[in-house]
Design a protein around this nucleic acid. Structure first.
Lengths: 241, 241
DNA sequence: CGCCGCATTGACGTTCGTCAAGTCTAGTGG
DNA sequence: CCACTAGACTTGACGAACGTCAATGCGGCG
């Protein structure tokens, strides 16, 4: 009953189309399985890694929900992303051999530990794995570009709408509802991610409720009018009344 | 007088410690030279690539200055970065095989075209090149994290100060002055990057001038008090008077 | 010389932050 | 079973920071 005996191979994992490259043959598949050295459980509120920690591995989230966060010298901090099952965290550590952000579990979680040396070694031999690693990093760059657009040019309503649309879309890709979701983070954490204060997040939720776009009961959100939400995201700045 | 005859090999390029991995032996060095397929000149105002273009290559900037920019559906756009000699652009294109941003030359420029297939091929064989490619991508992720912090939690003065400190530091690493710089971009482009309007950028410059921190004459900036500038970047939110 | 794009400056408005009071919910312990 | 508490959330009143609009200045170039 130790962790190796109950080990689920990547090749059997139901998240494999999220984590792994497509089109591997059987022998490649077996070798990629070996990239996952161990699993690690992270309790709610605990850090998977912290700013300053030595970088050794990337982590594939098997279950649970994380936030990543950076802090400025004077103590302000910024949530840089929320990560869910099938997503990879730790890429920030490659450049300097040390992590530059904190990864905090927002609910009890389990991750696959993938030592980076092993990833590099294997991706020298398996072309599709190499390409996959490059894509994962590029995807993160493109994602952050999108967040920069959000933070640099959107107003509160647009930010929150974009946030909800993005979350629900990612959850849907994992088999959850398109219209209902449970937020794993507080208003303050949402605000930190969106560059807003928690009160503004709360007010904006209330505004959406008034407008009949969503129902909100604490962290439970039901999207009543997804089109309206998407419309807000792409809103021209000029709307009469 | 054609482009191959005047070709400068990476191994002789004075930017090699910025673009290339360290610690290559001679034969590796020669092979890495071959990653650069051609050079390409880009006139001021022209695009190196555009959103939607097929992704083929990464580009190392030899001379000149670029901005990268993404646009939302409704026409707003966001400058996602300014790039100078020795820096690599095009990483956004890897994930979807198409570029997702525009790269525009802010002055006449020349880039080294590095077909990505060739990079991948060679980095399967030269471990230090592989590691180098990973670091470049990770560095970009970390850079964008920093921009998110800036956009999400800093006020106008802090943003502009951070911008100036960052620019001058990168220029200094290239042998330019620590205290003097010529901006290659308009106030509007600075504003777009920092999530501010051009008037706010202008006003904030004027404020810095009043405070004796910088001298500004159009795009010419001289930093009189670098410590004050760095202090603003890390300022506690509470300052009396 | 006159034009044009870029930059500066001022007056005013909007959005969001701040501060404070109060509500809801889940969890604890009597 | 219910009172009690702590943390998260909501709501209102007010103010600060930044955006908007408009007038003006400046410098380079044909």
């Amino acid at each position: 009953m130790n962790s190796t005996s109950i080990k689920v191979a990547c090749s059997n994992c139901n998240l494999r189309e999220l984590c792994m490259p497509l089109g591997l043959n059987e022998s490649e598949m077996e070798r990629v399985d070996e990239v996952v050295a161990t699993r690690r459980k992270v309790g709610r509120g605990d850090n998977l890694f912290r700013n300053g920690d030595k970088f050794n591995a990337l982590y594939a989230i098997r279950t649970g929900f994380f936030k990543t966060r950076i802090s400025s010298e004077d103590g302000r901090d910024q949530v840089t992303g929320f990560q869910m099952a099938g997503e990879i965290i730790g890429l920030d550590g490659i450049v300097s051999d040390h992590h530059t952000c904190d990864a905090v579990a927002l609910e009890d979680a389990e991750v696959c530990v993938m030592p980076f040396d092993r990833i590099e070694e294997l991706s020298r031999e398996i072309t599709s794995l190499q390409r996959h690693v490059h894509k994962i990093m590029s995807r993160e760059i493109v994602r952050e570009n999108g967040v920069m657009l959000l933070l640099g040019s959107m107003r509160a309503e647009e930010r929150l709408a974009a946030f909800l649309v993005n979350l629900v879309q990612r959850l849907h890709a994992r088999g959850f509802s398109q219209s209902e979701l449970v937020l794993r983070m507080t208003r303050e954490e949402i605000g930190s991610f969106l560059g807003l204060k928690l009160e503004t997040v709360s007010r904006t939720f209330s505004k959406f409720v008034e407008d009949g776009i969503v129902e909100v009961k604490q962290r439970h959100v039901r999207i009543l009018n997804p089109d309206a939400l998407k419309l807000i995201v792409n809103a021209q700045t000029c709307q009469p009344s």
